[in-house]
């Protein structure tokens, strides 16, 4: 049994302690916004936040995140906005629309989770800081727009 607090709701799951959080989210809870890309912590498609920090859920056993605040893309806006109404977007999600960042979109849940964490910790990152902390793979090559969108938020 594992008790997980995801997007503010507690779930008790009958899963092995070593099951990666990614598969508990996707296959047990049906929270499919978090994506499977590589399974080896390389691509970042599975990025969620644990206590606000970016975590690659494909290699994070559920036992390691019990009782912690887990946020997925589905709960990101609610977790960051002071006054949340269903359908609201956080600043990163809005900038992603303004700058038309996603292409296929598959990497973007992870990208948005990673960028949201970065900007909370460091609201005005340098290019080098962006490069160092956002190393998610985007096979569609949305990187120039990711950078532009981050810059726009930082300068807002």
């Amino acid at each position: 049994m594992a008790t997980l607090k995801i997007n503010g709701t507690e779930y008790t799951l009958d899963v092995e302690p070593e099951m990666p959080l990614l598969w508990a989210l996707r296959d047990e809870l049906g929270l499919t916004g978090t994506k499977f890309g590589c399974g080896v912590a390389s691509c970042g498609a599975c990025t969620v936040q644990v206590n606000g920090n970016p975590v690659r859920s494909c290699v994070m056993p559920v036992s390691a995140v019990q009782g912690q605040e887990i946020t997925t893309i589905e709960g990101l806006a609610e977790s960051t906005l002071a006054h949340y109404e269903p359908g609201d977007l956080n600043a990163v999600q809005k900038a992603w629309i303004d700058h038309q960042v996603p292409q296929c979109g598959y990497c973007q849940s992870g990208m948005i989770m990673a960028v949201s964490s970065l900007l909370t910790a460091n609201p005005n990152p340098s290019d080098a800081e962006i490069d160092a902390s956002i190393n998610n793979v985007c096979r569609c090559g949305s990187y120039p727009r990711v950078r532009k969108a981050i810059r726009a938020i930082a300068n807002a």
Binding site: D27, T32, G33, W96, Q100, G105
Partner: peptide, 17 residues
């Protein structure tokens, strides 16, 4: 298609459940 791709709601083949 972009709004659904920023909040996790976009449906891909792998997401069928």
């Amino acid at each position: 298609d972009i709004p659904a791709k920023v909040n996790g709601s976009a449906f891909y083949g792998l997401d069928y459940k």
